[in-house]
């Protein structure tokens, strides 16, 4: 009898391993236990983990914009019906309390909520920046919150500006935007704080159509570009020493479900591509990257939990629930 019980264990050890070098993962596409009749999703845009360890998913399905999972994929809670353009989800621990920032690209607003969905603050389009003729020109996709509470909003589908507010939502400045020159952005789809070097806190901003991340200081001065040839990178996600990002698609195969996930070490060097080409540097220059395994269609965000597991949310991929990937040691 014991032999039979061994079967599932053995089978479960043989999953497909994705990635390279020190960052390899076993993928499970069946992590989510959500019942599609009760908790449907549309585009799965972004995911975060909250302080108690739960996994939050933001979808533009207005029957439940936020799904809250445990790490085993069981739905614990769901809320939100007012975010038709739910796109960006950022969690910030505000003096010991988790709060969320939702970018809604149909409402042209950023909404700060409590962890259970109570609206705490709404940021309309930044008139004060004097670069927007109307609210429609502003299509926020992402937020990042600095340790002092400053809010950085990436207008990734609008004019590609990064708008900085104080913790109370008062406009401070804007930077980025479109133009010719390294300091400008094209499709500023994501933004995050990089606090890995405490002496030099800064911002990393996505310039997706340029296949790059760009570094700025906290006052919006451009510092440098991290070129990621071939990769339509979504938002940067930093956990520990590493930067993780979903790559919506490969430039070599646009709009044909050619996405993968990329991982950079703290020297901004790509060390692993999950479902993508082995990172290759020729004379210190990164070669074009592309999908090699069709594990993902259009991955849109990754979340790394407290146990280093990865969750991948996908856009326009047949309403699939997120996948979970466990590190292989």
């Amino acid at each position: 009898m014991a032999g039979f019980f061994m079967v599932p264990k053995l089978l479960s050890d043989q999953g497909v391993v994705l990635g390279h070098n020190q960052k390899k993962y076993k993928i499970s596409t069946r992590w989510s236990q959500a019942d599609v009749a009760r908790n449907p999703v549309n585009d799965c845009h972004e995911m975060v983990q909250d302080s108690p360890g739960r996994i939050l998913l933001l979808t533009n399905e207005t029957r439940n914009n936020v799904l809250i999972y445990d790490k085993n994929g069981k739905i614990l809670e769901a809320w939100g019906t007012e975010y038709p353009g739910a796109h960006g989800l950022t969690l910030f621990n505000e003096n010991g309390t988790d709060v969320l920032f939702i970018c809604d690209n149909q409402r042209h607003q950023v909404i700060k909520t409590s962890i259970d969905g109570r609206v705490l603050m709404t940021l309309d389009y930044p008139k004060e920046a004097e670069v927007y003729a109307s609210k429609e020109a502003y299509i926020p996709t992402e937020t990042a919150i600095a340790p002092n509470g400053d809010i950085y909003v990436a207008d990734g589908y609008g004019q590609d500006y990064i708008i900085q507010y104080d913790a109370d939502g008062r406009y401070i400045r804007h930077f980025g935007g479109r133009g010719e020159g390294a300091e400008y952005l094209k499709n500023a789809h994501g933004v995050c704080l990089d606090l890995r070097n405490p002496a030099q806190p800064g911002l990393i901003v996505t310039s997706r159509e340029q296949n790059a991340f760009k570094r700025y200081d906290l006052e919006g001065n451009y510092l440098s570009t991290i070129a990621l040839p071939g990769a339509w990178v979504c938002r940067p996600v930093i956990k520990g020493d590493y930067l993780y990002a979903a790559v919506l698609q490969s430039s070599s195969k646009p709009w044909q479900q050619s996405g993968f996930v990329t991982i950079l070490d703290r020297n901004d060097r790509v060390v692993s591509n999950l479902g993508g080409s082995e990172p290759w540097y020729e004379n210190e220059v990164l070669s074009e990257m592309y999908q090699t395994v069709r594990a993902f269609q259009y991955p849109h965000d990754v979340c790394i939990d407290d146990e280093e597991n990865m969750y991948v949310a996908q856009w326009n991929s047949g309403k699939v629930y997120p996948y979970k990937l466990e590190p292989v040691v």
Binding site: V7, P8, V16, I27
Partner: peptide, 17 residues
């Protein structure tokens, strides 16, 4: 058990560049 065992994902390769 073959039903209960987590069925394995089989993926297709992408074409070359």
């Amino acid at each position: 058990f073959s039903v209960m065992a987590p069925a394995q994902d089989t993926f297709q390769l992408a074409p070359p560049l």
